[in-house]
């Protein structure tokens, strides 16, 4: 499944952001975003993670992370 992990922004440098999800950090481009992105926001990344696709509300992101944690712990990932 094309599952995305909502990733929390921990740094922004121009058109690039450093994001964190499940303890892993990565760089992603903000070029496709048409709303401002700040540290603490949650982003959904496109396939491969090179581009941020959209911003999600914190409550939605945390619910998704909770569900994905269960996927991980049940051995479905």
């Amino acid at each position: 499944m094309c599952m995305a992990v909502p990733s929390r922004v921990i740094a922004v440098d121009g058109q690039m952001a450093t994001v964190e999800a499940f303890g892993q950090t990565r760089q992603t481009s903000l070029m496709m975003m048409d709303e401002p992105v700040a540290v603490g926001d949650y982003l959904i990344l496109g396939a491969g993670g090179n581009f941020a696709a959209e911003k999600v509300a914190e409550a939605t992101a945390l619910a998704a992370i909770d569900y994905l944690s269960q996927v991980l712990s049940d051995g479905l990932a």
């Binding site: 499944m1 599952m3 496109g46 396939a47 939605t60 619910a63 998704a64």
Partner: peptide, 14 residues
């Protein structure tokens, strides 16, 4: 709950 999860956990076709 599931309907609000779906667009958040599917990156390309939420």
């Amino acid at each position: 709950e599931v309907l609000h999860l779906l667009p958040a956990v599917f990156s390309l076709c939420g």
